[in-house]
Design a protein around this nucleic acid. Structure first.
Lengths: 143, 143
DNA sequence: GAGTGCAAGTCTCAGATAGAGACTTGATCG
DNA sequence: CGATCAAGTCTCTATCTGAGACTTGCACTC
C-alpha cells in the first residue's frame, strides 16, 4: 500500500518489443503470432519432446520411456502438433512390427537455440524462483 | 514408409542439452525444472502479459484492454502466478477507488532477453510454419 | 440519502481439455 | 493356440478454461 497516485503510467516506446510493433501494424488479437506459434512450442510437453529429440532421433516407445509421466495420448498429440508445424519428421520403417522414428527437421534444429536459452534461464534462476514462491506462499498463509 | 531398419538410434551426447545433464543428475520427473518453471512462463497468457509489462508498468484494467480476449479470471491468475514467481511486482495505491499497478521486477526483466529471442524466432518463422501446417492439413484431407 | 460509477477483483456454471489405462492390428515366436 | 510387440486409438473421468454476473467500498450527483 503506497500513497503515490499512479499518474502517468507512460508506456515506454520499446522498439524491440513485439507488442508495440504488432499494435502499430493493426494487431488482430485473433491472429496473434505469439499465441499461434508459441502456444504449440511452449505447450506442456512439446519442450520436453524437443529436448529429447535434440539428443538424437527417437521412436515412440523410446520417447514414452524417456519422458516418464507423459501419457500415450499426449505424446501422440504433441508429436502430431510438432510434425504439423514442420519441426519434426516422422518416418515409418516397414519392419515387423513396424517402427516409427521421429527426428528434428532443420526448422526444428533452428528453434533449439532460442529454446535452450530459455531453458537455461529457467535453470539458472530456478533457486531464486523457488524462494520467491516460498516467500509468497508463507505471506499468503500469514494472511 | 522406408525400408531401412531403424537400428542403432544412437543418442548423441549433447553437452548443451539439459535433458542429458538432468538424466545424469538423477532426473526426478516430478521435479522437472522445465515443467516447474517454463509451464508458468510459457503458459497461454503469461508471455503476452510479460510483453505488455515490458512496455512499462500497467494497471489491471489497462492490461485487460491491452490483451483483448483475455478474461478477468485468467488475467488475475496469470498475474498471481507471475507475482508468486517473483517476475512482477504488485503495488496498491490507496487512491479512491484504489489502483493496482503491475511492473516487471529485475528478475522479470532478465527473462525478457531469452523470451524476446523466442518470440523473435516465432515471428521470423511464422510463414514457414503456416505453410508447413497448410501442407500437413491438405495431406490429411487427401487421406 | 438514494442512485450511479469506478477499480479490481471473485464466483458460478457450462463446455473444453488432459490423463489413466483398456483396447486394436497384424505379424512373428513358443 | 495363445502371447508378444510397436504404435497408436478409444473411452471415461477429473481438471481446467472462459463468459460474464456479482461484490466491495468509497465518491459524486441529484
Amino acid at each position: 500500500m503506497t500513497r503515490l497516485p499512479p499518474e502517468n503510467l507512460a508506456r515506454a516506446v520499446a522498439p524491440d518489443n513485439p507488442m508495440a510493433v504488432w499494435r502499430q501494424a493493426g494487431f488482430d488479437p485473433h491472429d496473434c503470432p505469439v499465441r499461434n506459434i508459441l502456444d504449440h512450442i511452449a505447450a506442456k510437453w512439446t519442450v520436453l519432446i524437443l529436448l529429447e529429440l535434440h539428443l538424437g532421433p527417437q521412436r515412440f516407445n523410446g520417447l514414452l520411456r524417456a519422458l516418464p509421466d507423459i501419457s500415450r495420448r499426449m505424446l501422440t498429440q504433441g508429436l502430431r502438433d510438432l510434425e504439423r508445424d514442420g519441426l519434426i519428421d516422422r518416418t515409418v520403417f516397414d519392419t515387423r512390427p513396424p517402427a516409427v522414428e521421429y527426428r528434428l527437421t532443420p526448422l526444428g534444429q533452428s528453434l533449439m537455440g532460442p529454446l535452450l536459452a530459455l531453458v537455461g534461464w529457467s535453470t539458472d534462476h530456478g533457486q531464486v524462483i523457488a524462494s520467491a514462491r516460498a516467500r509468497f506462499d508463507s505471506a499468503a498463509d500469514a494472511a
